[in-house]
Design a binder for these strands. Structure first.
Lengths: 181, 181
DNA sequence: CGCAGTTATTTTAGGTCTGAAATAATTTTT
DNA sequence: AAAAATTATTTCAGACCTAAAATAACTGCG
């Protein structure tokens, strides 16, 4: 039998924050995560507008298309970006109007719309992506390499936890997710 | 003179990812952070809609007001939530219509609108906040306490890095930020 | 074949969000 | 005190986003 050392430690160290059913720590963690996410997002949004007169949703959509040589369907993009189909339709409409994206029904299945970047779209994206990468690096520049690695790891663990909780709720069977985001 | 040991190590260890000006690691970190944030946000959004027929912006706004006994101005709320003034005006309009929030000009400065929760608003918020806290705990349940603590710490470091980068860009002088989020 | 069910996308209605212009009230300067 | 500058909020135009309903196209089964 082991002596429950950790239990004793916990009793002493968590007095203020472990009242029955208290989860303030997770709440604070979530708020901090949200703060970071919002700060980055709005900074990138501002710079995209100022330097390229475009928006983050447009940039994100183009980034997806750029990664796929053969094109992507509306549904695939919507899943990747975690936004609704209708939203993809709307953002694509803007990009079509600007000649950055091409949309055409698939040959085998005419329900499906295949989206690709136009030559102009690829050029425009390349310019933006380069700057974008610099901006992100700049924003994280205050962290040591070891810290970014550790953070990346912990966010991977977090993602797994989230998928687990979300799947457990929707179906009875948790689906193991092995994607690379 | 010191021997640049780290330079040698770097040369060997970072061959694939440290090409001149390559910052793919930070990019991946940002994408993962965004994924986590989006997953949590949309899950909370769904549950607020299903269980309370309300929305996340409304909940967030009420959460701010609940923390302040004396009320908050439109500007304060807008800063806290990191959204525009106009947006606060719009969300408050909805809450006013539902009788959850009270708005009145300040006595000393009639430009300022002071927002407070009504009694009904406080009741409604209390019920939601309790469930909300459980949801968040559930979402992070897959992490060990040591991991959440570590993650919280690293996100604090990240926040500092972000503020540093953002301030450096806007003014010449970085403003030290000591807030508690 | 023919229709029932499924799947992919678009449309619709409504809320959210922004930046910039407009409005209104206060403070500072002269 | 009057004019000028500043500050707080609202309004506006436009983009984003969602859920749910509608549309359109495919699949499979009798």
């Amino acid at each position: 039998m082991e002596i429950p050392v950790t239990a004793l430690l916990l009793d002493r160290e968590t007095k203020a924050s472990e009242r029955p059913g208290d989860h303030k720590d997770e709440l604070r963690l979530w708020l901090r995560l949200l703060t970071c996410s919002t700060l980055i997002e709005s900074e990138i949004r501002t710079r995209l507008r100022e330097e390229f007169k475009t928006t983050l949703p447009r940039f994100d959509l183009m980034a997806q298309l750029e990664k796929s040589t053969t094109g992507m369907t509306v549904g695939e993009v919507s899943q990747r970006l975690m936004v609704s189909n209708g939203n993809v339709t709307a953002v694509v409409a803007g990009l079509l109007a600007d000649g950055l994206v091409d949309k055409r029904p698939a040959a085998q299945d005419r329900r499906v719309q295949v989206l690709t970047l136009t030559a102009q779209g690829r050029r425009a994206f390349k310019a933006m992506a380069e700057r974008h990468e610099d901006w992100i690096a700049e924003l994280f520049a205050g962290l040591e390499p070891a810290e970014t690695a550790q953070l990346f790891h912990l966010l991977g663990r977090t993602k797994a936890s989230l998928h687990q909780a979300i799947n457990r709720r929707q179906s009875g069977q948790p689906t193991p997710t092995g994607d690379q985001t």
